[in-house]
Design a protein around this nucleic acid. Sequence first.
RNA 1: GGAGACAUAGCUCAGCUGGUUAGAGCGCUCGCCUCACACGCGAGAGGUCAUGGGUUCGAGUCCCUUUGUCUCUACCA
Length: 877
Amino acid sequence: MSERHELPKTYDPHATEDALYKFWEESGFFHAEVDKSKEPFTIVIPPPNVTGQLHMGHAFDETLQDILIRTKRMQGYNALWMPGTDHAGIATQIKVEESLREKGETRFDYGREKFVDLCWDWKEKYGGRILNQLRKLGSSVDWERLRFTMDEGCSRAVREVFVNLYNKGLIYKGHRIVNWCPHCNTALSDAEVEYEEQDGHLWHIRYQIEDSDEYIIIATTRPETMMGDTGIAVHPDDERYTHLVGKKAILPLMNRPIPIFADDYVEREFGTGCVKVTPCHDPNDFEMAARHDLEHIAVIDNEGNITKEGGKYAGMTREEARKAVVADLEEQGYLVKVEDYKHNVGTCHRCHTSVEPMESDQWFVKMAPLAEPAIEVVKNGEINFVPERFSKTYLNWMENVHDWCISRQLWWGHRIPVYYCQDCGHMMVCKDEPHKCEKCGSAKLKQDEDVLDTWFSSALWPFSTLGWPDKTEELEYFYPTNVLVTGYDIIFFWVARMIFSGMEHMGKKPFSTVFMHGLIRDSQGRKMSKSLGNGVDPIEIIDKYGADALRFTIVTGIGPGNDARFYIERVEANRNFANKIWNASRFVLMNLTVEDGRLPEELTLEDKWILTRYNELVKAVTENIDKYELGIAADKLYSFIWDDFCDWFIELCKIRLNDKDDMKANENAQRVLVHVLSGTMQLLHPFMPFITESVWQALPHDGPSVMVSKWPEYDGSKVFETEANQMEQIMEVIRAVRNRRSEMNVPPSKKAELIITTDRPELFERAGLFFAKLAYASSVNVAVQTPKDAASMVSVVTSSAKVYMPMSDLVDIEKELERLNKERDNVAQQIARIEGKLSNEGFVSKAPEAVVNAERQKLADYKEHLVKLEESIKGLK
RNA sequence: GGAGACAUAGCUCAGCUGGUUAGAGCGCUCGCCUCACACGCGAGAGGUCAUGGGUUCGAGUCCCUUUGUCUCUACCA
């Protein structure tokens, strides 16, 4: 026990965190097995990109999940936090390709198979990094169940889902306009397109009407696509142009006649009311082309360059072509005017290249039938969002959802389980690779070249990780999961898709609650991003301040679902909090002789006060966590530990601990200290797992770890409202004395006698001790009578007592009077306010009784205080 | 074009289902190396809770108006 005295003065998280984590992991505390005698509580992790690095967004996410899972585990649930990583199709492929580019190579130098092998190598090399970073944070995930979206099981689930949906007609191959990223060279889903407002132009171009002197003017933002124009649309009711419908206009530069037709899609007010129609490079034009049977001419290729169809512009990039086309139009007199125009340009959310709408064959998920149950399950409250407002975002999207383009022209990912017979062209969709054509028997089969959208596999995460499509006992027991924690930025990418997938394939919702959080921004409120270089690396923060400080920072001072700015000062403040806990514990340990924290029979006033406050804390924190008010719970723990426990209770306990004559009292104090500190460490453990474990272990304890200890329960038999109230009264007096002395610049070294006059002397039984310790008293006299020479003393008045300090050299009667009068006015004002309230019949009859009674009590206290103030004033005069 | 959020102390933000003399951290002022902690202790200053109205016995908290900031979403060339 002697080494306890040698604990360092400053808490060093670095020295302990890794070892503690290792201890937890090796002890199997993170692992959950099916156990039907216990209620499960399950969270699946939003799988981070396998080759990614931990950023603040992850830290936010994981901290919230860890708080929930650790709390539930301690509350006796069979808590499973399912970990895993995502193969992150585009992101990973881009990284591997970049590494090749450094060597002057491309994926085509390797071919598909070898390139995919390189991706796996990459995954092996970097896949462990983020997992170890999760450990640094303290995440209590069940490592024995670690999954990967491309592991055998998840891949099987993907094929199963694809084939099932195909057989139901919910997956189809379609010839459509899709979002195409010329840089990533693949199709994207709508969700993967980000819109940026850009400054552009609206070019007005004159088209000659065929066999006529008349002309028509169209307005466009994209002149470089005009070589692919195959029509001009006007509104059917637009009288300006009715006479032209059916005629043809000559497409400038190409000298090709194209038809003028009428279509409802056109807005008469916009531009000139005439729209150039480019079926291959605009989704609306594509649809108009279908309605009016227009020709399709593709003028932009997969790399974003102009095709042969683009005449003299062939081979140029889109940007070059735009300049050249505009220059030619101007030179040849077709350009009527140019307006500045702000418009939204779709960009690839991975590389921010402008997305090109392209006509192509892609695989789609038919969303309407799947959306229906996914809408219902949120509307009827089976799944609820926290905060509630996000359900509106979700519903709005789901109610207007488009079919989901799921094929990607990449190599890294789940290859689409569709096979084509090279001989007869027959298409087979099957879970396992077929060996011969089911139609002609040919063995010459070729699998579809495309892979699936990364989110296709993450959509299955809540059940694929539990063994689906097999009917495992894990699936039976842990599904549906309880809470999903994630940022609002991936509601569409992920949350929505998990919900409809769960409903479709499991027939059950994937989770009951979606707990949303915001984004962590930099200190100026900007998004953290690589390109800005303003990202804060959580691992660096952990190395410097400890994981506990980071976690506490993340969870406090943040409004539900709101974004938050990251300030290092807040981490420092929470590091200081950890240090405070450390030193409070060091103090308790230094004084410790008892072997356990059983509460003594005899409790002092201060014991009863702290136990009351502690039990209130247990109740509040438990309820707050239940309601996902984690920040509020954390705030309460902070102020209980710092203000109540350290600043008051420890100081009060020093009285007994320093009394070597009364060992009984000394030990009693120790027991209460240990009881409260130990319980507080349990309550704080989900938030600050490391330091709480260190402290809990050092104190007398049962069981191997605080993380598997039983969550504290509210104990009504240890709540003493009367005594707690009395203690608060005494604290009020102590504060008043300190305040007085401070105002008068009395140095702490100068002790003074205190004469307390009160009608409630029982309140101040232990006061001599308290005041000596906390109010610089040299001695304390409790009296009923006002001392004779009161006028020459410094006085302090509260509702329960008047305190006199014989410091005649410091007394300035004028000032004293002024101060007392000011205080009296203040108290009188409060009395008037409450009396006004209480004389309001509406208040007395309609407000709850407890509220009215509280006001009455306050009034009584103020009145007592006023009486005492007036006596004092009279005494001075 | 739709939808939502935010506007509270110098700064960054809490404030749950309406009821305390409106809170925290940092910063600031004054005094302290008090035998756990200067990453500390004690005492302070600082807010007409953006605006105007309404509901209510009672509103920072609910409803509407205005102003300002931000975000998401949408096929307006």
